[in-house]
Design a protein around this nucleic acid. Sequence first.
DNA 1: GGGATATGTAACATATGAAGTTACATGAAA
DNA 2: TTTCATGTAACTTCATATGTTACATATCCC
Lengths: 147, 147
Amino acid sequence: MKRDSRLSSVLHALLHMAEHDGPMTSEALSKCLGTNPVVVRRTMGLLREAGLVASDRGHAGGWRIAVDLANVTLRQLHDALGEPAVFAIGNRHETPDCLVEQAVNAALDTAFAEAEALLLERFAEITLADLAADFARRHAARRAQRG
Amino acid sequence: MKRDSRLSSVLHALLHMAEHDGPMTSEALSKCLGTNPVVVRRTMGLLREAGLVASDRGHAGGWRIAVDLANVTLRQLHDALGEPAVFAIGNRHETPDCLVEQAVNAALDTAFAEAEALLLERFAEITLADLAADFARRHAARRAQRG
DNA sequence: GGGATATGTAACATATGAAGTTACATGAAA
DNA sequence: TTTCATGTAACTTCATATGTTACATATCCC
């Protein structure tokens, strides 16, 4: 199955934007991400609808972060992307008539619900500021290593 | 993304087999599951490799459970299916050069690893016997409801 | 032995959905 | 008014789970 990598992508994009002075164009972001400007606009557009970023057209236009990095969690970004399905595994039929299948679904649904709840809880605990700080640490470590 | 429903399918099949006297053919199972006999053989073949079921050809052939229901967990079935990817969400690149993307991946990987660990833990706690008992309860409830 | 029945498996078809691409409209700044 | 940027529709590509066809192989019963 092809994985949805949009959360990973927007995080990558947002941190680059945070490190960059002034707005960044879809073109510039697409080069950071190794993708296409249209894909960037399509995905960032969802974040704009959620009020997390803003975009400007024309000269000196592009994308900029519209909120405080410390106030944006991975959970908010996941929600902004439309809460895509978390699991690649699932029930064969959602509302089966067969009692056997109902018993199977009930057991699986419970397990998946618990795991999803934990994932979203972790997402809610991590802010963009946390990631930016982690990046800064990695950056400093690389500089130190180089001498 | 299209979800992998094989775990759901094999559970459904195994419980029908548990309720049924004697072996069940791929044909019969495929009708229970609403799928194709070849798909059943393909999937059940993985369980056979794990020693969980056995198959016989020819007259009176078919599939039968080779172990005690109380000794088989969902985790074992998941493993028998080749431990398919649990998540439909993932990193864009697995081992990026970009330090920003490394920081993003590290955060996401941790969250996903925790959620996957919880899911597999729950899977390990649920046996086929548990599901069979739950089915029996549902069956009794339906009979009672009908009068 | 020979027909009937069942699995084993390769090869190919279909369906779904994420991501990539092309094309062009719209809007803003120099 | 030219240039640069986003907005968005339409289409293509790619991955992969699942479905399907065809046929080989093994077993049972007569």
